[in-house]
Write a protein that binds this DNA or RNA. Structure first.
Length: 715
DNA sequence: AGCACGCCGACT
DNA sequence: GTCGGCGTGCTC
């Protein structure tokens, strides 16, 4: 439905309402935060003394409280849906705040519809949390302070030099400058090819045209780095960041700067995709393949997909950048003639800036390595790898060793009776953390001190099984005497400032060997690393999740990109992969950095299996007191909507989730698949109301909650 | 989700 | 006698 920008009253003075309310009143639809299961999915009607244009922020009474709401375009449900409700008046209007623009409302409306969430939930969720707290008086004070801050802006700083463009960057920028209604661009550039420079040059064009730029990165960790670079380039521009790491006041302030049009560049994580931007001229999604762009709880939206929709809405270019695009984006950037959809335009930048080559890949066959000494339960580190690291240490170069598992060992086991360190509340093992001698469940957080002896049989001999980053660090310290070790993982970085401190010591050359989980592989720029090693990459090869290989390939390639960024050392930099399956196609493609070939293999498999991007998926998830309760809900959910499904939509049998029980809640899921996205959408919309009513019934028999995940990342 | 109302056990 | 446990129900 087309949305009107003008401020005509949504509904003319209503006789019935006017009769029961003071003088003449307008009836306005307002969206408020009403969760899905409340059954109130459309806007609620209120009375206002004057016409309020759509997008106006108001405070309205809801039950016994007063909540923030947004005036909406569409009148609330048809007249019959509101029988004898006595309409209440709008309590306050947040004056001075420009109405949220039509494009914003349309984006939110689309997201709510597509991801099957209540409109109000979606709308309120993407507003700064602080805004929800303020009444009109408090808002007035904030607004005054903000205007003072705007006046204080200092734009007298010098702007950094622009580096010369590589031919490939120049070509990409030429393509971006071509006139005409733009398709989204997939900027496919290898790590170090200078994608950021392309973003900055294109941003410059938008800024010069008086437009605003939205740049997104997958993780908070990466915003300071990008912000520094953007600030150096556009010192005379106002730049704000938006992510969940800001204080509520900062977040509100930055959001307002964007909404008022004062901020020229907005840098942020996925939530930034909803920032109202009156002069939007460019959207950049860096590392577009990164799973962090998909929200993993509540309204499970994909910020990358919404960015594409938003670009279309505002008719502005969208750049999706990656060295290893998601298969969805790759497929969209393949021309029709090559079996893709041709919806995106691909811009390739295969070469690294400054003649740096990608490191040589060395796939090390563990089955041919000498067996570890008997009685040593730690998984092996190949001797060749250790000597390659030793050489680096001696030369004063740095190495990065990746292991995607934190803690000391994923499980403890009793050598006598076979007891294992299970979590009493989850169907998962508790991880042994040697640093503080605890057993910690990574799912529910349940933590205990490590028992002295086996809780079952009293045996003193309980041993760690497997290896996490703590143990790897210990192993490397033993094997490389004299080497200075560092570690970066979620346990280290949960202390404020620890990541920055650790990165600084790596940059200062105080660390020879850095151990880390995937978080170090992402985006951090290390100049002196000449060896990157993945010591246990095989797990992903046999995971049940069909996207595991895609993720692993991206991670390994991204990790390889950490090495040899300086041309001086690039010549002898190496990427090591120690594996039991050296011939696996994933490693073969990695050897020659052939993403295109890897994508071709994967797409073929997906097509044969009827999986994305050749099909659309949704997951109906249920949580219950018992596994039976969760599955019973899903079974009946399937039965009730069987007729709606028809030919085009297929419902799979309910199954327990990969981790079946978390914090004593049993979880099950049911996959829903269709070759046509639209058919799936229509089905879900129809099914939603059926399931809503059904869920009420099942609450008594042990259903706790349920939700639909559209385009799930993990299955 | 909040935040009520509502009807049964251990405390000032 | 009240404080408070969380079961059920409503919000324009």
């Amino acid at each position: 439905m087309p949305l009107s920008e003008n401020a005509t009253p949504t509904t003319p003075p209503d006789d019935a309402a006017a009769a029961s309310a003071p003088a003449r009143s307008w009836r306005v639809p307002v969206v408020v935060e009403t969760p899905q299961h409340s059954g109130l999915t459309s806007p609620l009607d209120y009375l206002a003394p004057t016409a309020l244009p759509p997008g106006t922020l108001v405070r309205v009474p809801l039950g016994r409280r007063t909540v923030l709401g947004v005036v909406w375009d569409t009148p609330a449900a048809g007249p019959d849906a509101l029988p004898d409700v006595q309409l209440k008046p709008v309590a306050e209007v947040l004056d001075g705040l420009p109405p949220l623009p039509a494009e914003w409302r349309q984006l939110v409306g689309f997201a709510a519809g597509y991801y099957q969430r209540a409109l109000g939930e979606m709308a309120l969720m993407v507003l700064p949390p602080e805004l929800r707290q303020l009444d009109a008086t408090q808002w007035g004070r904030r607004e005054k302070r903000l205007h003072k801050a705007v006046a204080r802006h200092d734009d007298s700083v010098a702007t950094a030099e622009r580096p010369p463009l590589t031919p490939q960057q120049a070509d990409a920028l030429d393509a971006l400058a071509e006139p005409g209604s733009p398709k989204p661009f997939l900027l496919w550039g290898s790590t170090g090819s200078g994608k950021t420079e392309v973003y900055l040059r294109q941003a410059e064009r938008a800024l010069e045209a008086g437009q605003q730029v939205l740049m997104m990165v997958p993780e908070i960790n990466l915003t300071p780095q990008l912000e520094a670079r953007v600030a150096a380039r556009f010192a005379d521009r106002r730049i704000v960041s938006l992510h969940s790491g800001l204080t509520p006041a900062q977040r509100l302030r930055n959001w307002l700067m964007a909404h008022y049009g004062h901020a020229d560049l907005v840098l942020g994580t996925r939530l930034a995709v909803f920032t109202p931007l009156p002069r939007l001229g460019l959207i950049v999604v860096d590392e577009e393949h990164d799973p962090s762009y998909k929200q993993q709880d509540g309204a499970r939206y994909s910020a990358r997909d919404l960015a594409v929709y938003r670009g279309h809405l505002h008719k502005v270019p969208v750049i999706l950048g990656s060295a290893t695009p998601s298969l969805e984006s790759w497929f969209n950037a393949l021309p029709l003639a090559e079996g893709g959809t041709g919806r995106y335009r691909r811009l390739a930048m295969p070469a690294r800036v400054g003649d740096g080559n990608m490191p040589t890949v060395r796939v090390l066959d563990l089955s041919r390595a000498p067996k570890p000494a008997r009685g040593d339960s730690a998984p092996p580190l190949a001797r060749e790898l250790l000597s390659a690291i030793t050489e680096r240490v001696e030369r004063g170069e740095q190495s990065l060793v990746l292991l995607n598992r934190r803690g000391y060992a994923p499980v403890l086991q009793c050598g006598d009776c076979g007891w294992k360190s299970g979590c009493p509340h989850c169907s998962a093992w508790r991880v042994f953390h040697k640093v503080d001698r605890t057993l910690r469940c990574h799912h529910c957080g349940f933590t205990e001190r490590v028992p002295r002896a086996c809780p079952d049989c009293g045996n003193q001999d309980i041993a760690p099984v497997g290896r996490g980053t703590e143990r790897l660090e210990e192993q490397l310290a033993e094997a490389l005497p004299g080497a200075r070790l560092g570690r970066i993982d979620a346990d280290v970085t949960k202390h404020k400032g620890a990541l920055e401190a650790q990165l600084a010591s790596v940059h200062a050359g105080e660390v020879d060997v850095l151990v880390g989980t995937q978080m170090v592989a992402k985006g951090h720029d290390f100049r002196r690393i000449t060896l990157v090693a993945a010591v246990n990459p095989d797990a992903a090869l046999f995971a049940s999740d069909f996207r595991a290989a895609e993720r692993q390939f991206a991670l390994l390639l991204q990790a390889a990109g950490r090495a040899g960024r300086d041309a001086g050392v690039a010549g002898h930099s190496e990427m090591w992969v120690q594996t039991w399956h050296p011939m696996h196609p994933l490693y073969q493609a990695l050897r020659c950095y052939d993403y295109a070939d890897f994508a071709r293999q994967q797409l073929k498999e997906r097509e044969m299996a009827g999986l994305p991007p050749y099909a659309s998926l949704a997951m109906l998830r249920a949580e219950g007191r018992t596994q039976e309760a969760a599955q019973a809900f899903l079974l009946e959910a399937a039965r009730l909507v069987q007729d709606h499904a028809g030919e085009a939509v297929r419902l799979y049998p309910p199954v327990p989730t990969p981790v079946q029980r978390v914090a004593n809640v049993e979880r099950a899921q049911m996959m829903i698949e269709s070759p046509q996205r639209l058919a799936l959408q229509r089905f879900l919309a129809a099914a939603q109301s059926v399931w809503l009513a059904q869920a009420q019934q099942h609450r008594r028999s042990g259903l706790i909650r349920w939700a639909v995940d559209v385009d799930p990342l993990a299955i």
